[in-house]
Amino acid sequence: MNVLMTGVGGQGIILASDILSEVVMRAGFDVKKSEIHGMAQRGGSVMSHVRFAGEVASPLIPYGCCDILVSFEELEAARYPPYMNGGTTVIVNRFRLAPPSVIAGKEPYPDVVPILKGCSGNVYLADGTAVAQALGERRALNLVLMGVLSKFIEIPETLWAEVIADMVPERIREVNLEAFKRGRTIDLVRT
């Protein structure tokens, strides 16, 4: 299984992919994950590849082999068509963060849904940001989206909860577990 997580530096993608990796390892899989740090913190595009199977060779997902794409931001979902195939499950968080050229008024923020529908027949929209805001913790967005993702991976919810409890600092544990739970029951809008 190949999962691609995309978004913008600071959205909590690295912790989310760490949690997924730990969950699948505890479920008995070999797992590899690859992402780019460094400049990522400066508000640039971020992507994280997570691959799990009996044995994984390449840390990078081959083109056309992404099973699930989870994007924390709308525009960032549309940057990776080469990794997708007609059956890729695409989960897009309904949140727009304007990139520099849009901020400067040079071009409009694009509608990425048509691009995504051109790549895959399984495109879902989820308002994870609203769920996190309702919890009073915007930074719990990553756990909301892990909740959404967990519905597409056959691993018991209890294992996810166990890993989240182990990996998230105590003072924000409860809100993150709740975020995960709400993510599992979020309204997914198929486009």
């Binding site: 640039g44 960032e76 549309a78 068509p81 990139p99």
Partner: peptide, 17 residues
């Protein structure tokens, strides 16, 4: 050699905070 075509999407380079 596969080289993904450059996209028409607005780029998001890293920037000063």
């Amino acid at each position: 050699i596969p080289r993904p075509a450059p996209q028409a999407l607005p780029p998001r380079p890293p920037s000063m905070c």
